[in-house]
Design a protein around this nucleic acid. Sequence first.
DNA 1: GTCTATACTCTGATAGAC
DNA 2: GTCTATCAGAGTATAGAC
Lengths: 199, 199
Amino acid sequence: MHLVASPKVDTDRERILSAAARLFREKGFDGTTIRQIAEASGLLPGSLHYRYRAKEDILVDMMRVAIERTITRIIEATADIQEPLVRIQTALQAHTEMLLSGDDMIYVLLFEWRSLRGNARQEIIGERDRYEKYWDSMLSSIKEQGYIRADIDEHLLRLIGLGAINWMATWYRKDGKYSLDEIGNTLWSIISKGILATH
Amino acid sequence: MHLVASPKVDTDRERILSAAARLFREKGFDGTTIRQIAEASGLLPGSLHYRYRAKEDILVDMMRVAIERTITRIIEATADIQEPLVRIQTALQAHTEMLLSGDDMIYVLLFEWRSLRGNARQEIIGERDRYEKYWDSMLSSIKEQGYIRADIDEHLLRLIGLGAINWMATWYRKDGKYSLDEIGNTLWSIISKGILATH
DNA sequence: GTCTATACTCTGATAGAC
DNA sequence: GTCTATCAGAGTATAGAC
C-alpha cells in the first residue's frame, strides 16, 4: 500500500491490463494463457507473476478499473444537467459510448464475471451494484417528478434499458452499418416515447 | 446417417445434451470437463466419446438443437395471428419464454458461441442468422403496413428489442422480484408506445 | 456399445539465479 | 524487478478388452 502512485507502476499496470483485456475479450478468460498475456505485455511469465500472483488477480484488478471508469464517466456526464429527461438521455449515451468505444475492459466486466470464484465474485458484484444503484436513484427521482409513466417500474426499466445497450457489445462493429449516433438516437427515440408520461 | 431416428438414440442425445447444457451454463464450456458431462449423463468418459468424438461436437450439436427449437417455437406461436402488432407482441413473448423458462441450451446458445472455433462457429452463426431473418421479415412487413414509425430502422429495432430480452438471462431468477408476465407486460408497454406510428 | 486404463499435451504456479 | 527452468496437476483424447 503506497500513498502516492508511481507513474511507472501505473503505466505497467495499464499496459498489462489492456493487453489482457483484449485477449480475454477475443478468447475468453479460460481461453487465454498467462504466457499469452505476458507476451502481449512485453514481459516474461515470471515477471508477470511478480505483479499478479494468480491469473484471477488480473481479472479482478481489470474489473475494478472498469467499474471505476464507468461510474466516474456517468457521474461526470450527468453532473451539470438538471432537466430530468436530458439527464437520462445523457446517461444512456455515456453508457453506450463507454461500452462501444473500444475499451475491452468494460466488455470483459460484463461478460466474464462468471470466471470469478468466491470472494472475488462477491466483491465485483458488489461494485457493480454501486453502479446500478446510481441509475436506480436517478430514475426514481425522475419518476417521482412525474416524467415517467406511473405504471412502469423504474427498476425493471433500468434492467430493460441497460440490457438493450449491454447486448449491443455482441453485435456492434466500428465499421458496421450503424454509427454510434444512429444507435443512440434510435434507442432514445424508442425509450423516450415508450416511458414518457402524457401530461 | 440413418433415415429413421431411433428413439433410443434420441433419448440418449437429449439426456447428454441436457446434462451438458446445465453444466455449460453453470461453469462455462471451458470450465466443464468431459468427465463431468459423462457422469451427469450416467455414462463413463469412454462411452461418451463414442457418441461425440470431441468436446466441441457436444456444444455444436446442442446449439443446433437450441436454434431449431427456437425457430419452431416462434413460427408456431405467430402462425395464426394476422393483426400486425399482436404478431410482434406474441413473438416477443415467445422469445422471452424460450429464454427464461429454464432451457439451458438456449442460454448456452446465446453466451457460449465464442467457445466455437473455425467452421463450427461459422455454421452456428449461419443458423442464428436464419432466426434473425425471420424477425427482420416480420418487422419489415409490419413497417410497410405503416404500424411502425417511419424514422425507426426495423433492423436496428430488432437488435435493440431482442437485446433487451437476451440480457434478461443474466439477471432473471424464477423466484425473483418480477414474474414472466410482469416482465413481458412492461417490455411491451415500453416498446409498443415507443415504436407505434401515430395515425 | 460400454468399459478400464493411459498417453500426451498444456497450463498455472513456483523456485531461485542474476 | 526480471529472467530461466521446471514442477505438479488437470484435461482431452485414445487404445483396446469385453
